[in-house]
């Protein structure tokens, strides 16, 4: 009797957890279908080619134009800038924590970095307006510092915890025997790190960067607050830009329901979705390769 009850209990919970698992997949699929469904309504009116290659985003003008290239390039510039800052810093920090830091320092650094990830993006946005922006304005002599560089710096701050944590795990997981072999032939710590440990951890580090990119592409609130939001075609780091995410956030609240403009926002959201999905899949791929390498 007792055994029967236990088996039932087991079965019930297995079903519940299976259901939640499938629910996640269903939600993901549902979002994609919803985006796609509304995008199709948009592409009936505007050709996909014009949408992708158009250099002007002006949906509310008299002759509305829906070229998403400026938004795509804005997102690209801000993300690229963020990675230029965050990747070397992140890998360097990860290597320091894993290879050089004494246990005491490590115990402070690791939780501190994880806490950085918990800072709400709005708060980081304030940082951009109050500190980074005026700083950039002062250096460049512009009237304000709300531009792509500002966004990139803030996104770097936000992507750093992800990059550091994942890269640190990867570096830490490199078998001790590799390091010993390297020290054994007379290599210094630095030589071992550069020639042996980091190359061995490369798949994990690439995964870390990809996850960082995913975080940066999708981030909305900070870029909305810090980049100035000018929908003109971006001309560089010192100009205001408007990313895909901030465009959706700004315009969605104002747009009349089920107009072309309304559907256009779903279309750019679809592009964003595909972009982040691709980046995450690439990251996953490298994480898996990394796991295989560890097992070998």
């Amino acid at each position: 009797m007792q055994i029967r009850a236990r088996e039932n209990f087991d079965r019930t919970f297995r079903m519940i957890f299976r259901a939640t698992g499938f629910l996640v997949i269903a939600v993901l699929g549902g979002i994609f279908i919803m985006l796609l469904y509304n995008s199709i309504a948009f592409f009936v009116k505007v050709s996909p080619w014009d949408f992708i290659t158009g250099t002007q985003w002006n949906p509310s003008g008299r002759a509305a134009s829906y070229g998403m290239l400026p938004l795509l390039v804005s997102t690209g510039i801000v993300t690229l800038g963020a990675m230029i800052i965050a990747v070397p810093l992140g890998i360097g920090t990860a290597a320091f924590i894993s290879e050089y830091a004494k246990p005491g320092l490590k115990n402070i650094l690791k939780p501190a970095i994880e806490m950085l990830a918990a800072v709400p993006s709005v708060a980081i946005g304030f940082l951009g307006i109050v500190i980074v922006g005026p700083g950039i304005a002062k250096i460049t002599g512009q009237s304000n510092g709300l531009n792509a560089l500002n966004g990139a710096i803030l996104l770097a701050v936000m992507a750093l915890p992800t990059i550091i944590t994942v890269a640190e795990d990867a570096i830490h997981a490199v078998p001790r025997t590799y390091r010993e072999a390297s020290y054994g032939v007379g290599a210094s710590r630095w030589q071992t790190l550069i020639h042996i440990t980091i190359p061995a951890a490369a798949p994990g580090i690439i995964a870390a960067v990809m996850l960082g990119v995913g975080r940066a592409i999708g981030e909305t609130m900070t870029v909305l607050m810090a980049t100035g939001n000018v929908a003109a075609f971006p001309r560089g780091f010192f100009h205001s830009v408007r990313t895909i995410t901030s465009t959706i956030a700004i315009e969605m609240g104002e747009v009349p329901y089920q107009t072309t403009h309304y559907f256009a926002l779903f279309a750019i959201a679809t592009v964003l979705f595909i972009l982040t999905l691709a980046v995450n899949l690439i990251g996953e791929y490298f994480v898996n390769r990394f796991r295989k390498f560890q097992a070998a």
Binding site: P175, T177, Y178, E180, A181, S182, Y183, G184, V185, G186, A187, S188, I196, P199, A200, F293
Partner: peptide, 19 residues
């Protein structure tokens, strides 16, 4: 590093570099 160059070591488990 000088010491380790003059006194080499072979480890318990073969540990070639992943190269």
């Amino acid at each position: 590093t000088q010491v380790r160059k003059r006194v080499g070591m072979v480890f318990q488990k073969a540990n070639p570099f992943p190269k």
